[in-house]
Design a protein around this nucleic acid. Structure first.
Length: 262
DNA sequence: AATTTTTACAACCGCCGGAGA
DNA sequence: CTCTCCGGCGGTTGTAAAAAT
């Protein structure tokens, strides 16, 4: 059954907004604001639109100080770093990027950044025989600039912008499975990985990260992350290997991030 | 030049949680 | 305490534009 729809779908216009609708909405917002009620707004503003649609249009497009266009390398790094830490919490990520909207960032990640990273993962896999058999041996990127110290402070993983051609050429230990969400139903993205239970209260992160004590090394992905087969038939050792990380480490790491970001 | 495929992004959908009655 | 309403969020879809064939 489900909830009643927020508006009468038969009597609202859908699809792209016309310039006239944009200016109506903008004028109304400039004069009255939302009035605390998006649902009632379209009627007051003389728009044949769903309230949610108005809200979205305003937040993602008409609102002042919205930044459109190319993302900078710094923004790329911040997005990747935060995604690695908290997963697809786009609104939180957007809060760290003034002028960018969650929708924008989500689109950017899905269409460009993910592919960019996949390309790098694949090329790094060509250089190194396989996904690191023991990622614990992979050295963390060294801290350097003020930007990287920011990430060091707020994220279990941070980039070193000075040590990277575009800031993304050596992102992190990441399985390509993790980024490839359309041909492998067992990928960690969007599925429950065993370690998520350890993070349930503060950070439901689809990309797991394991902070190893005395090291800033992270391992992304869950029990499938190092699994090369698409049928989910990973060996038990691959699955259990991440569970040896203390859950308190994950939790405390997560909580400290929340405090800084929210 | 025409057609097909890919890319980019705006918009929609449905679920969830908080606030207030 | 329960219920309802609304805002907010993340995932997904639709489609126009660009690129490839």
């Amino acid at each position: 059954m489900g909830r009643a729809p927020c508006c009468d779908k038969a009597n609202v216009k859908r699809g792209p907004w016309s310039p006239e609708e944009d200016s109506k909405l903008k004028d109304f917002m400039d004069k009255y604001g939302t009035g605390g009620n998006w649902i009632a707004l379209p009627r007051k503003a003389g728009l044949k639109r769903c309230g949610k649609s108005c809200r979205l249009r305003w937040l993602n497009y008409l609102r002042p100080n919205i930044k459109h266009g190319e993302f900078s390398d710094d923004e790329d790094r911040i997005i990747c770093s935060l995604f690695a830490s908290i997963g697809s919490r786009w609104s939180i990520i957007a809060a760290q990027l003034p002028g960018r909207t969650d929708n924008d960032i989500k689109n950017y990640w899905n269409t460009k950044l993910k592919k960019k990273l996949m390309g790098m993962v694949q090329s790094s896999q060509r250089n190194t025989p396989t996904f690191p058999i023991n990622p614990l041996l992979t050295p963390p990127p060294p801290p350097s600039s003020s930007l990287s110290s920011l990430y060091k402070d707020c994220s279990p993983y941070y980039y070193d912008p000075t040590n990277s051609m575009n800031g993304l050429d050596q992102p992190f230990s990441m399985s390509s499975n993790l980024l490839n969400d359309n041909n492998n139903s067992t990928t960690c993205l969007g599925t429950n990985c065993s370690l998520l239970q350890a993070q349930e209260s503060s950070m439901l992160c689809p990309m797991q990260y394991y902070k190893v004590k005395d090291s800033s090394l992270l391992m992304f992905g869950g029990d499938q992350a190092s699994c090369s087969s698409s049928d989910g038939s990973c060996s038990q050792s691959q699955i259990s290997y991440g569970k040896e990380i203390k859950q308190e480490d994950i939790r405390s790491s997560s909580e400290s991030h929340d405090l800084k970001w929210v």
